[in-house]
Structure formats: C-alpha cells, structure tokens
Design a protein around this nucleic acid. Structure first.
Lengths: 319, 319
DNA sequence: ATAATGGTGACAGACTTTGTCATCAACTCG
DNA sequence: CGAGTTGATGACAAAGTCTGTCACCATTAT
C-alpha cells in the first residue's frame, strides 16, 4: 500500500478507535512498529491531536476533538460557508461560536488572495438584520445537549411572576425568535410541556435524582405550536393588504391567517377567551388595516383598552 | 522536496495561475517536465478539474471551480457549519444555496456514523424562526454581485405607487429584515440613494449604456441608517422594563434607546415632525409600558388617533 | 525488579520517484 | 504542406525515500 493511502486509513482508524497501541496498528496495517511510529508523527504534524503515555496501560489517544480526513472544497463552497456564518453574526450566545470561527479561519488561511478579497468585500455588502441586544442565554449549550440526548436537567428559572425557582425539565427543542432563545421542555414539576425563555434560565445541571426521562422521541419542533385553546371563542377579522403584510411577520399568527389572491386576508380561528386582552392590544396595533367581525367580547375589550389609554394621555395633558 | 509537499504547492500554484504550461511549472519547481506531468495526473485523480489542450497556445487549464487544498476539519467545526447552514433554512432565495448544500454533503460523507447521528438528532431540536412567506427575490444573486463589483444595473422595479418602471441603480448593500430582502442603491434616475424591495425587482441586467459608476467605496451598510430628520422635534419618553424589551426588537428604534441598569430605559432623540402619525401608532402599541414626556404634538396625535379608533369600534358596536 | 509501552538513531535493503530519452499525437500558423 | 509547439506515454537507470531491524533509552504500573 502506498504511504499516502496508508496515512489516510490510519487517520480514519485512529479517529474510530480513540485509544490504541502502536503494536496493534502495526499488526493491522501489516507494517512494522517503527513505521507506525513515524506515521503517527506525521499525522501529528498534519494536525491530528495525538497524545501518548508510556508504560503499561499506556498507549496513544486522540485528544480533544476528532479530526475528519482532509476534504477538498471548492471556492464557491468556502464562500457559501462564510456567508452562512456571517449571516448569524448578530446572534449572540450562539452554540458552536468558537468552532465556527476556527472553521472559518481554516478556510480563510487556505484561500488564494483574490477570494479573500471577494469575501472581504461581500462582508460589508450583505447582511441579515436581527433584533439587537439579545440577552445572554448562558445555559444554551447545556439545553441543546440535553435536548439531543433527551436527558433531564435541573434548572434555576427566574419567572416573571414568581421569581427564581428550581425546576426539573426535559428539553425538547431550542429555538430563536425575535431576539430571544426559547426552550420547549417537559416540566416534571408542572407535569406538562412548557416554554422557557433561555435567558431566564440562570443555571442548568444534569439531574442526579434519577428521574426517568420521558419517551419524547416523536415530540420535536412541532411542540412549540400552540396547544388547543381552553374555553375557545371564534375570532373573525378581515385584513387589508397592508394588514396581511404586518401579520405575516408575527409568527404565532401565521397559521391562523388565510391570504386571498389580491393580497388581503382573513383571520378565522378559535382562540382562548383568556387572551382577549392580548388580542385587543394587537388589533389596536393594526389600526385601520383590520376590520373585526367577531367576537363581541373582543370589541368590548378593545373599547375598554382604548378608553383607558385615552384617559392615560388625557391625564398627561393635564400635567 | 518530498513529493507530498510538492503536490500541495502544485495545487495552490495551478489554482492561482488558472492557465499554465508544463515547462513553466517544471522550471518553477525545479523538476523535470515528466515529473510535473505525473503530478498533474495525480492532482486530476484527487479531484482537481484539469483540462489540457495540445498544440501551440495550448496548455493546461483549471476548469470550472477552483479547488482549495484539502483541509482537515474537526468534528466540532463540521457540526458548527451544519448548524449555521441549518439556521438559514427558512430563508428562501438565498444566494449560495447550491454551494452550501454541496459543502454540507462533503462534510456529511466524510463523517463517521456517530457524528451523523448527532447532527441528525440536532436538526430537529434546534431552530431559528424566521417570518414565513418570504417572497421570491429572483434577482438577488445579480444584485449582490453588482454590489460587490460596484457596477450599474438596469432594473425593472414595480413600485407600489407607480407600477412597473425601469431604473438605473448601483447597489450598495443587500440586507434581509423581517421577511424581506432590501437593496440600498444609488438611483441614477432619482440622483439619490433609495431602498428597493428585492422581490419587487422583476429583472436586473448589467447596464450597457456606459453609465459611470459612482465612487461608493466608503458607502456601505451604514447607508441603510436613517438620514437626518428634517424639521426635527425632540422626543422624550420613559420606558418600563417590559417596554424596553419590546422596543429592542424594533430595529429602527435601537439606536435611539438608552437602557438603565435596572432594565428600564429612556428614549431621547430628535425625530422628524412628519413622522408623528407613525410614532403615535407605536406609542399606542406600547400601552402602559411607556410614559411620554414630550413633545406635546405627539400626545395630541396619540389622542386624535385613539379617538379615531374608538369611534371606529363604537361604530362596529352599532352595526 | 520486571514487563509494558513509547521514543530515537543508524543503516541496509526495498521500494518509489525522478530524469532522460524516444516516440507519438494533436494542433497552429505561415 | 511542413515546421514548430505542446501534451501524452513508455522504458529504464539513477536518485531518493521509505521501511524493517536492531540496539538502546525513558517512563511507569505492578
């Protein structure tokens, strides 16, 4: 076998084994220990992070991260990776931040100068706008890890109403929306699914009390969909074209919205009676772009709200 | 020089040169033509797309895409790249879509099975929510290209007011915000900077009439910032903690906002008098979370607006 | 102490790569 | 056409690199 091929296979083998002895590999590849030692040194120089200990029960280890065999990317592919990572630059507390940066610098180092220029000039010409000031979500990595492994966490959650409290949860999925990270999880304290704002999770540790994880294999991202409303009431409203455009950027509304051919639209959906205050605020925000048809309760709530606001601003005027 | 090293350098050299003759490389590397020929054949087998023509003025060419020398990525880096591209999945009409996909499949192919599983399970556990229904922006690639090269385009633009019209523009930057792609550009018809919605640009072609591009080297993303208000008026308002959080997700507001230590905040900024109606709507949306201090004109505008809305909903009640 | 294990240097022999040369093929240009 | 340019391929000896063997050292667990 030519040396170059042997080196490749050796790289794959050591990545698979993680721990091994020189004699082992020598037998496997049908070469002498000396050769394997020389090869391992070369791999080391090529960037595979090897660590060795002498003595009985010693041997080689691949330390830290495993390395993929070298891959030849085209320039276009490298630029695309840059673009993707660049697009996420406004999001703070991202998982894999360090890894992205190191991957990008590897691409950057191996690039001929003209492609670097191309990328540098692209940097300032294209952008994804994200809401500013994302709050820190210190436990994001733990939450994601727990969601992947489907294990139970004990978290310190600072809810708006009750202040800090401890909860046992099993994360289902993590998602970012409009400036915040959220985590849908099964809450063992409430015995139901709940959505947590990740920046309010101050600490997260793996549960050691032996709570048995739920079988949530099929429960995935869909879990963030709203649950069925209790005490439903029918909401019907007609939206102008502008109204539709505004509603489309509201994630929670999108599934309730039917768009007509001419761009105008209709909301027709059962909603929870408890949410009247919320919908009243929202309808007020839409102003003349919405014509509410029912329920009467919502109209009433809107009028009450408007009157309260008017009083508030009348009050100011008197100051 | 060992062969392996020479092959690496050869790969970089041919990528830089794009066109070359065997004799040239032989001199450059101090080896014989025969050796270079053998090396080029090996590079070819390694995936570098080489093409050769015999005869005078013939020679070698690197065909299609240039290839970077093989890079060894760690697993973590590969996962990070997956994450980044995955996060953008909801955005339609992205540039570099094909390249991202092919880069990802290269990573995927070279990965040991357990990492694939890790990625597969991550896919369904983490998400970036983007507003739905992005309109198609068919000319995005052209716009980006023109922005990078700073060249002039002739576009067919369908404005809301005047219907379709032809414009000569020089794109400055492209950005995505809240479900739409925008392009800031210098418009030669209006002789000023304008922002175009990319989905309303039906066609784009390079200008052939010889319009001289502007010197826009220093004009970059900042161009999307609001210009100075004409007829300014001072706006001062105090925001509660909740109010601050809501404002932070409004991009245009972020620069006007000062956050205090306890999470509450202040808006204090000169704004344009023409925008009173807009600010009135916005303040109403903030409800009790904002205490407006000045200007008087805005309070008046809010009261007017509230009264109008109230009338609208009183009207409904009478239906 | 003993045995297991990695690390290094030297060197001859095995193996690979290289240079040279010869020959061919495709093509351009005058 | 014919002369010149350029790539493609095969053969083979010379040059160079890689490999196995061996001797020896260092470290460490038992």
């Amino acid at each position: 076998m030519p040396k170059s091929k042997r080196l490749m296979e050796l790289m794959m083998t050591v990545n698979r084994k993680r721990r091994f002895k020189v004699q082992e590999l020598a037998d496997e590849f049908g070469v002498s220990k000396r050769t394997i030692l020389r090869d391992l040194q070369e791999l080391s120089e090529l960037g595979v992070p090897l660590y060795s200990e002498v003595g009985p029960h010693g041997g080689y280890q691949v330390v830290r991260e495993r390395v993929l065999p070298p891959i030849a990317f085209t320039e276009g592919e490298a630029v695309a990776m840059f673009f993707a990572v660049h697009a996420l630059r406004h999001y703070s507390s991202l998982p894999f931040e360090a890894e992205s940066a190191s991957a990008l610098s590897k691409f950057y180092l191996h690039m001929p100068g003209d492609v670097r220029d191309r990328i540098d000039s692209m940097k300032d010409r294209v952008d994804f706008v994200a809401p500013t000031r994302w709050s820190d979500a210190p436990c994001l990595a733990e939450l994601l890890d727990a969601a992947i492994k489907q294990s139970v966490l004990v978290i310190q959650y600072e809810s708006q109403e009750r202040g800090a409290e401890s909860r046992r949860i099993q994360p289902v999925c993590i998602y970012a929306n409009n400036g915040f990270w959220y985590c849908t999880a099964y809450c063992f304290n409430r015995q139901d699914y709940r959505v947590f704002r990740c920046d309010r999770i101050r600490e997260a540790a793996y549960d050691t009390s032996g709570t048995v994880p739920m079988q949530l294999k099929d429960v995935r991202l869909s879990r963030r969909d709203a649950s069925q409303p209790r005490d439903p009431i029918r909401l019907r409203a007609v939206l102008s074209k502008t109204g539709v455009q505004r509603c489309e950027s509201e994630l929670w509304l999108a599934p309730l919205l039917q768009v007509r051919e001419d761009g105008s639209g209709v909301i027709d959906k059962d909603v929870s009676r408890d949410d009247m205050t919320f919908y009243a605020e929202f309808m007020i925000g839409l102003g003349d772009e919405v014509a509410l048809e029912e329920p009467y309760e919502l109209k009433e709530a809107i009028r009450t709200r408007l009157a309260a606001l008017l009083a508030r601003y009348e009050g100011y005027a008197a100051q």
